[in-house]
């Protein structure tokens, strides 16, 4: 956990928020889970990120359709200190699970993402740092949500910060960096 401040500082550089981030809302955990599941999970075992929330019922606080007056409205989607912290904790939990998967299975993953992770687990080997592996990992988590230029920034950040770190720490860090990217988080 002591790493957090470093990652956050790095993120500030890494991901210049989209120009109109002020108006943009979080997608909400259920939308993100569905997106992520399509990319990295097998059809029969979708990923449910709310599992990683610090407590039950908190997913209401990070963007959700809920009753409001007589109708439903998307609520708590506006980024604020509370939901930002909650999302970070949730994603940290997921990133840790993903990294731990190098040692023992933690998550149901589809074949193609499993192969990518397997290659990354050999970090800091050259095989793991291969451009193709990093691209596949980026696309697995982020999809095409971000412009191509964002990938290059992330890759350089990962190679620089985690170049010589052990696999678990590196994978956790690079996953979290990806998930806290506004292009991943925000409705656009």
């Amino acid at each position: 956990m002591a790493r957090f401040p470093i990652i956050v500082a790095a993120l500030a550089l890494l991901a210049a928020p989209p120009a109109h981030a002020a108006a943009a809302q979080f997608k909400g955990l259920s939308v993100i889970s569905k997106e992520l599941s399509a990319r990295i999970a097998p059809e029969e075992g979708p990923i449910e990120l709310d599992r990683y929330m610090p407590a039950d019922g908190l997913d209401d606080l990070v963007g959700t359709w809920a009753a409001f007056g007589t109708e439903h409205k998307f609520q708590n989607g506006q980024p604020n200190a509370v939901n930002m912290v909650l999302l970070r904790l949730t994603f940290a939990g997921f990133a840790q699970s993903l990294a731990q998967s190098c040692k023992s299975p933690q998550l149901l993953l589809n074949d193609s993402f499993f192969d990518t992770l397997e290659a990354l687990c050999t970090w800091p080997s050259d095989e793991a740092k291969n451009e193709q592996v990093l691209t596949a990992f980026w696309l697995g988590i982020m999809g095409y949500n971000a412009p191509e230029s964002e990938f290059a920034v992330w890759r350089d950040f990962v190679l620089g910060t985690y170049g010589e770190k052990p696999a678990l720490e590196a994978i956790e860090g690079m996953t979290l960096a990806l998930m806290l990217n506004p292009y991943f988080l925000l409705e656009q």
Binding site: V31, K34, E35, S37, A38, R39, E43, N110, D111, S112, F113, G143, Y144, N145, P147, E148
Partner: peptide
């Protein structure tokens, strides 16, 4: 790259949230 972004976004929209998968 942007065409793939468009395809993914469109897939999510028309497939109830499920974007491109393997």
């Amino acid at each position: 790259w942007e065409k793939r972004w468009w395809i993914d976004k469109t897939a999510r929209l028309f497939r109830a949230g499920q974007g491109l998968s393997p």
